[in-house]
């Protein structure tokens, strides 16, 4: 009898709507938001702002039989669309008259490396619940995630109290300047979405097609890399590494990914020859800072949505592991 009762209780909890979020701790809300983004049907328009650049985008996210498919359309400038399903990411660029298809493993190293909110984030970030607000006609819980040092950015998130869906998100530096933000300006959460909504609107007849197969090449287990960063912010760990030929390169590039569970930094090791090498010193692209330096004949670049000082620190600490073959040469 008791066992049946417990089972029923667990079942009821699993089926319960995500209401009363304001009473929950920010970490729990964060995990539920992550789940909502992956499992809900949604369709909407949002504004993405970074570095003074504003883009309006339309997104439709459909989940059918546990399989998520997503379509993202740029509403400004040249027509561009990205469609992602379980196996492929297809990018259609009308201005380039090209289609890029990236095939991916279902649970390969790349997807496995996508950072997840982990339990030890409290060691590096402070979580605060702020006053709820009304956003898009919905009650929005607001949480602030503040870094405990100057080596990573903070976050401020507006979360629909009913569904757990993200309504607005900001990446914030130590001076509270907003580095990057996403704001939904309309959002629908229908029970179901017709498959037709996922079809591209760009008639890509005659477009050049490029296929990058990420399922076969170059992935290696973390720890097998020939390179390592010796100076990382606390909590950052190597979660993925690979060696592969990148576009336009004549030699393979080694790519290491470090993350603390929220922020991620990539380290690229390349040959230092040719016209295509990244310039030495600090760079910025989108919300990401980058720093490039030389290690012998190699060019090392650290890049990520973290402060400039962090990528500089990491890039300057990259060394070859003793006794390991160097692929990027």
């Amino acid at each position: 009898m008791m066992r049946t009762l417990v089972k029923a209780l667990i079942g009821a909890m699993a089926l319960a709507p995500l209401s009363g979020w304001a009473d929950q701790d920010p970490q729990t809300m964060l995990r539920k938001t992550e789940r909502a983004i992956e499992t809900l049907n949604y369709e909407g328009t949002f504004v993405h702002i970074v570095d003074g650049q504003v883009d309006t985008m339309y997104v439709v996210h459909r989940v059918e039989d546990g399989v998520a498919t997503e379509r993202l359309v740029s509403l400004d400038g040249p027509e561009r669309e990205v469609i992602r399903d379980q196996d492929e990411v297809t990018c259609i660029f009308s201005d380039q008259k090209s289609i890029l298809v990236s095939r991916r493993k279902d649970d390969g190293p790349l997807r496995a490396a996508v950072p997840r909110f982990t339990d030890n984030l409290e060691n590096h970030y402070r979580f605060r619940s702020l006053r709820s607000v009304n956003k898009l006609g919905r009650d929005a819980a607001v949480i602030a995630i503040e870094p405990q040092d100057d080596l990573r950015y903070g976050y401020k998130l507006w979360i629909d109290s009913d569904s757990g869906m993200l309504l607005k998100a900001q990446l914030v530096d130590r001076y509270r300047k907003v580095v990057e933000q996403l704001i939904f300006v309309s959002l629908d959460l229908p029970e179901s979405i017709p498959a037709e909504r996922l079809r591209p609107s760009i008639a890509a007849e005659g477009y050049a097609r490029y296929v990058q197969d990420d399922t076969a090449d170059g992935e290696q287990k973390p720890g097998r890399s020939a390179w390592q960063a010796g100076n990382l912010p606390s909590g950052f760990k190597l979660t993925a590494s690979n060696v592969r030929m990148m576009a336009g390169a004549s030699s393979p590039t080694e790519h290491l990914v470090y993350t603390d569970g929220l922020a991620s930094v990539s380290v690229f090791i390349d040959q230092g020859e040719g016209d295509q090498v990244a310039p030495d010193g600090a760079s910025r692209i989108g919300a990401a800072n980058a720093f490039t330096t030389r290690v012998g004949p190699h060019v090392v670049t650290a890049m990520g949505e973290v402060p400039a000082v962090t990528v500089k620190m990491i890039a300057r600490s990259v060394t070859q592991r003793p006794g390991t073959p160097v692929a990027a040469q």
Partner: peptide, 8 residues
């Protein structure tokens, strides 16, 4: 590999 701003 980035995760900022939710899944988008």
């Amino acid at each position: 590999y980035a995760t900022m701003l939710g899944g988008q």
